[in-house]
Design a protein around this nucleic acid. Structure first.
Length: 490
RNA sequence: CGGGGCGUGGCGCAGUCCGGUAGCGCACUUGGCUGGGGGUCAAGUGGUCGCUGGUUCAAAUCCAGUCGCCCCGACCA
């Protein structure tokens, strides 16, 4: 266990916070619920962002930026959508401060009260659709495929680093289409991109499926999500893709002239993933030593630790290793030397805490053997390799680690996913082992709520590969309408 | 908003019950010896004890108020 990090077994929530703070991913901001994403955490986010941005652009989407502030009046436009966010909106009411009479502090200048209050976006559907109304007239203007990288604010009661902060970073895509089919296709295409991002880059296996009505996005016809299992067996909704139907078009009066020369409301989608993904990476792969970062997104993939008794040794060692560092850098491997004055043992622990996939140790012993030592973070393993094999081995190892942690996470999830046939069994699994429970559901909200109230478990999704045939509802005993995944969730 | 905990050098804490010189560990600075799993010795730097008011000769400590944070719940990505 790493010094100062609570073990997962003792308290998972505290472990999570400890790891994030001590590894330097993030820190608490001065305003309750806010978070400073520190350089190490931000680079991790940037790497995720870079991968996703490319996939979105490759599939025909373009980036744009819409304002942070939304007129309050926009929120009256779409009742259902507003209902979902009204309780957690930050509202700007004034635009000026003044010095207090005693000259000691500042206060809001009542003279500066705004005519119309302004909402800090909790999501951008309303402002984007107000603009789409201006931009869309004909089917020739469609599809409109815009993505935005932005910050949003949701004034949550309880927050947790990365998983739920008052302000967070995300991307939100907002698309407009001619037909329902096209919108549905887009919604699913994005879900598939999210699945790729999670599995291929974050090494985070996910279930894909559709949300139950009560869990779907405010104002959506259908919400699809990717759901991952964390190290404590709870579920994390890691990304959502919504088919909004014509709801927003109707709310904002966005019509277009169709190919048949008829006026119709456009069909919409919206979708997003956020810095929450970073929290997911921490919880899916992390252990008591700290982070375990997937090589593809790790800010540092190889950390070099020279073990030298004095400055002369250090020079000899660096001469030996410089070539490898250059070759790695040329191949795009993110490699860094820790030549600080800390002891080797300290560095080992430090970089394990930070989750660097490969550690390269080199001392005089290795220099004379023309070797380096490679240690991997995902398993306990150290090997000596010849200098001329080092770059190749590192390349292979990075690949292997990426695969291994994905498999490990998938195994863990599968081991903790069970099918149950009685409610007694259901409750037993949820309260004792935890994890995902696969079972029949009669499709009623009443059942969903009753189960949630009694067990805290919610329907994570109706998986694409599910089949309700011959299943009974776990709660009511009626014929099942869906086969679903239940779990306690973040 | 309910329950719990906590505010004392950068971080973690002791001291508060029973008022009397503000302390410990880590970190930090300088130098020496070290270096293959969180090294070591020496010398240093750093604090209006969350804030406001009260009691007192005297308040980190007692009293009243207030602000803030963390954890657990309800709500949520």
């Amino acid at each position: 266990m790493s010094k100062g990090v609570t073990s997962q077994k003792d308290n998972y929530a505290t472990w999570y916070t400890d790891v994030i703070i001590k590894s330097g991913l993030a820190d608490y901001g001065p305003v309750k619920g806010t978070m400073v994403i520190r350089p190490y955490g931000y680079e991790l986010w940037e790497n995720i962002k870079l991968a996703l941005d490319k996939m979105l652009k490759d599939s025909g989407h373009v980036n744009a930026y819409f304002p942070l502030f939304i007129p309050k009046s926009f929120f009256a436009s779409e009742a259902k959508h507003v209902e979902g966010f009204a309780k957690e909106c930050a509202v700007v009411t004034h635009h000026r401060l003044r010095t207090t009479d005693d000259g000691q502090s500042v206060e809001v200048d009542p003279e500066s009260k705004l005519e119309e209050e302004v909402i800090v976006r909790p999501t951008s559907e309303t402002i984007i659709w107000s603009m789409y109304k201006k931009w869309i007239q004909s089917y020739r203007d469609l599809p409109l495929l815009i993505n935005q990288w932005a910050n949003v604010v949701r004034w949550e009661m309880r927050t947790r680093l990365f998983l739920r902060t008052t302000e967070f970073l995300w991307q939100e895509g907002h698309t407009a289409h001619e037909t329902d089919e096209e919108a549905e296709k887009e919604t699913l295409k994005i879900l598939e991109i999210y699945r790729n991002l999670a599995e291929d880059y974050l090494a985070m296996p996910v279930l894909t499926g559709v949300k139950s009505d009560s869990e779907k996005f405010a104002g959506a016809e259908k919400t699809y999500s990717i759901e991952a299992m964390m190290g404590d067996k709870k579920a994390l909704q890691a990304g959502t893709s919504h088919n909004l139907g014509q709801n927003f078009a109707k709310a904002f009066g966005v019509t277009f002239q169709s190919r048949e020369n008829k006026e119709d409301f456009v069909y919409a989608t919206s979708w997003g993933v956020s810095t929450r993904l970073v929290g997911g990476v921490v919880m899916v792969h992390g252990d008591d030593k700290g982070l375990v970062l997937p090589p593809k997104i790790a800010p540092i993939q190889v950390i070099v630790i020279p073990i030298a008794k004095n400055d002369e040794d250090k020079i000899i060692i660096m001469n030996q290793i410089n070539d490898i560092i250059t070759q790695c850098a040329e191949k795009g491997i993110r490699i860094k030397v820790d030549d600080s004055n800390n002891s080797p043992g300290f560095k080992f622990n430090e970089w394990e805490l930070k989750g660097v996939p490969i550690r390269l140790e080199i001392g005089l012993r290795d220099v004379s053997n023309k070797e380096v030592v490679l240690a991997r973070r995902d398993i306990v393993d150290k090997q000596s390799v010849k200098l001329n094999q080092a770059v190749k081995t590192i390349t292979n190892l990075l690949d292997e680690i990426q695969k291994n942690i994905l498999h490990k996470a998938a195994d863990f999830r599968d081991k903790n996913t069970v099918c149950v046939e009685s409610y007694k069994e259901f409750k037993n699994v949820i309260s004792n082992n935890g994890g995902f429970v696969r079972c029949g559901w009669d499709g009623t909200v009443e059942t969903e709520i009753a189960i949630k109230n009694e067990t805290k478990a919610t329907i994570r999704c109706i998986p694409f590969n599910s089949n309700p045939k011959d299943l009974k509802c776990i709660f009511s005993g009626e014929d099942a309408m869906y086969e679903v995944i239940f779990a306690k969730a973040y």
